[in-house]
Nucleic acid binder design. Structure first.
Length: 469
RNA sequence: GGUCCCAUCGUCUAGCGGCCUAGGACGCUGGCCUCUCACGCCGGAGACACGGGUUCGAUUCCCGUUGGGACCA
């Protein structure tokens, strides 16, 4: 498939809630495939389930895709806008004798299913309505596809290889419900046909649907596309990833302070690999992506590795970009009273990146530099702001006042001489100062902190801390 | 229960018959660095599910068992 420039793939989520990790991985692989082969990537919203689909969810999907950088070439198409098309294809099947009306109610079906089961027969539809010559009065029918009984349907999957299904296992599936809406398996086939999809790349959970879809393609008179079924993403307990496994929605990762490139990189490496390489830019992903190197086994989602990647990408990120992102978070928290000077804020960001795994951590680290009044952690105070350090802090404040420029190097000189004169270790002075300035015991290097925080704030806080003792 | 799929360190994976005393990454862990916490650097523990074949030789091919998953009900 090296010259397949007519590649057309799609991502077809149902707008019934969040855009979750599994969906993103499917979207990503489709996108990579399309970009690798210079084909088209189509976004299609499968919203025929009217009871569960919402406009809000469509927005979440669209926004999520944009955030991730997964741009599409056509769409978003909505199935609800295509009802006429489905009806036309239904009619075609009925007229061709390949589909028939079914008047059975769910209750009736359930009873017969149980009877069949009791009699030791497979619980497939008994085709009762196929022989009907006239409509059943007072009932609105569904439409069933007349499936093939004999032989086998072979799914030639690009990832799985040939998967064989016995046709007698497949029963006459409903293609149009009595409410007039097409069912999933039918709509997806009509959509993929009319949108000229060349490769259907989707989750493993659809593999069992594929033989009946192939039969529909054949009944409609079309060649099926290529199929590629991606292995599932599992939670730590090895069941299909879901909400109970923790954060699974894209929006949650945005809120948690993740960068899109970290999520993309992580998800790309879940089920796909390229030798020993772990870090991939989007461009490298596009260049190297191939269905040949997609694994068959399901993979467990590992949040810690994602966190590691996020840390990596924060180190790589442009400070101006990070500054804007972190500032946004601070504004949302309502702690930004006066807009900080952006060049100064970038210095703060530069100091914070190394020890931050998420933007939220950066925000927390930036807080003492932004707000006017800090609250000092009680434990930290008890341990480091002891009676003997009060004079030490006052002495330090006095010596810092005349320092110009108020730089890392100059400040360090003051500390060094003070520490030497008193014959104490640097830590004995640095930790109390750290508590005085940030309210806690954890921060970047103390000289950096002091230089970035600025003389006024530093001296004010050191004196305030001394007065607290 | 039926159908289908899958099987290398705890996790993601490399491996497509000999290069494997099984490599990398996350995590874990020992040490170094050090003003705290991190980062970083150096080292360590840690896997081919099991049983049969095929072959001169199996992690790699085939079959079975076991285990896990998905779909349908």
């Amino acid at each position: 498939m090296s010259t397949a420039n007519n590649v057309r793939v799609r991502f077809a989520p149902s707008p019934t809630g969040a855009l979750h990790i599994g969906g993103v991985r499917t979207a990503l692989f489709n996108w990579l495939f399309a970009r690798h082969y210079h084909g088209k990537f189509i976004l299609r919203i499968e919203d025929t389930d009217q009871t569960r689909s919402t406009g809000e969810s469509i927005k979440i999907i669209v926004d999520g895709m944009k955030w991730l950088g997964l741009d599409w070439d056509e769409g978003p198409f909505r199935q609800t806008a295509r009802m006429d098309i489905y009806r036309a294809y239904i009619d075609r099947l009925i007229k061709g004798g390949k589909a028939y009306y079914c008047y059975c109610t769910p209750d009736e079906l359930e009873i017969r299913r149980k009877e069949a089961l009791k009699a030791g027969k497979p619980p497939k539809y008994d085709r009762k309505c196929r022989a009907l010559s006239a409509p059943v009065p007072g009932r609105i029918p569904a439409v069933r596809f007349l499936s093939t009984d004999e032989g086998q349907t072979i799914v030639r999957d690009l990832i799985r290889g040939a998967v064989t299904f016995e046709n007698q296992q497949l029963d006459d599936l409903i293609i149009q419900r009595s409410d007039g809406f097409p069912t999933y398996n039918f709509a997806v086939v009509v959509d993929d046909v009319t949108m000229k999809i060349s490769h259907v790349i989707r989750g493993d959970d659809h593999l069992n649907n594929t033989p009946r879809q192939i039969q529909l393609y054949q009944a409609l008179g079309y060649d099926p596309p290529e199929f590629a079924h991606l292995p599932m993403i599992l939670g730590a307990d090895k069941t299909k990833l879901s909400k109970r496994h923790g954060a699974t929605a894209v929006t949650e990762y945005i809120d948690l302070g993740y960068l899109p490139e970290a999520l993309v990189n992580y998800l790309a490496r879940l089920g796909w690999s390229h030798g020993d390489q772990e870090i991939f830019s989007s461009q490298e992903l596009i260049e190297n992506f191939s269905l040949d190197t997609v694994g068959k086994a399901p993979s467990v989602f590992n949040p810690e590795k994602l966190l590691w990647l996020n840390h990596y990408y924060i180190q790589q990120a442009d400070h101006g970009r990070l500054a804007a992102l972190v500032l946004d978070l601070l504004r949302k928290d309502g702690v930004v009273k006066t807009e900080p000077d952006i060049e100064w804020f970038k210095k703060l960001i530069a100091m914070l990146t190394e020890r931050s795994h998420t933007l939220v951590e950066m925000k927390t680290g930036a807080l003492p530099f932004i707000i006017d009044e800090i609250t000092i952690d009680e434990k930290a105070k008890a341990k480091h702001l002891t009676a003997d350090v009060a004079p030490l802090l006052r002495e330090l404040a006095d010596r810092l006042k005349p320092i110009e420029p108020f730089s890392h190097e100059e400040v360090e000189k003051v500390f060094t001489s003070l520490v030497n004169e008193k014959g104490i270790k640097l830590g004995k002075l640095a930790q109390p100062v750290r508590v005085a300035l940030t309210g806690g015991t954890v921060s970047p290097g103390i000289f950096e902190v002091i230089a970035v925080m600025g003389k006024d704030k530093v001296i004010r806080r050191i004196v305030a801390a001394a007065n607290l003792i």
